[in-house]
Amino acid sequence: MRWLIRSQSLVTLASGMIYPYYLLFLKNLGNSYAKYGLAFAVFTISSAAFSQWLAPRIDHSGHRVLLVSSLGMMLAMLAFPWVESYAWVLLLQLVMGCCSAMQKMSERLLLADHTVQGERGPVIGSYHFWTSAASGFAVILGGYLIDWLTIDALFYASAVMYGISAWAVWKMRKP
């Protein structure tokens, strides 16, 4: 359980760090909010579609799915600074939508697996606390990092954190 919290705190750290700035980055891509909306729709729709494929398969491979999700996000973060067309942004949004489905579903699954009915409150509370607190730090840190360097540096930093969280998930598999 502790490794789950650690790895997922890192994931929220990584995503919390990049997410608000990523929104700004996306908004700057097009002149219209409709175009911005589309990029987000691609994310949520791919996430929804992928969840349907994933649902029957996830029960026995929660860890692996979580690992793949972290690695997928890491690759997406590494790719973003190099993207030069809107179509690529959509493609990455699609990949990230799938990763998000994997992350959210396996996270819930593992939380349920590692807890017992009637005793879930404190675990979920502690899980939520640490992941949210991590997010708070991350977003402040992210602002500093962009001011001092560039938004690209933030994408890379976020990729590093997804990488570490993947390692933490991998570590979790071993007793």
Partner: peptide, 15 residues
Amino acid sequence: RTREQGVIPSKMMFS
């Protein structure tokens, strides 16, 4: 050329 090269190290140096 559409991409700026080496912004991160240059920006660090300029700081």
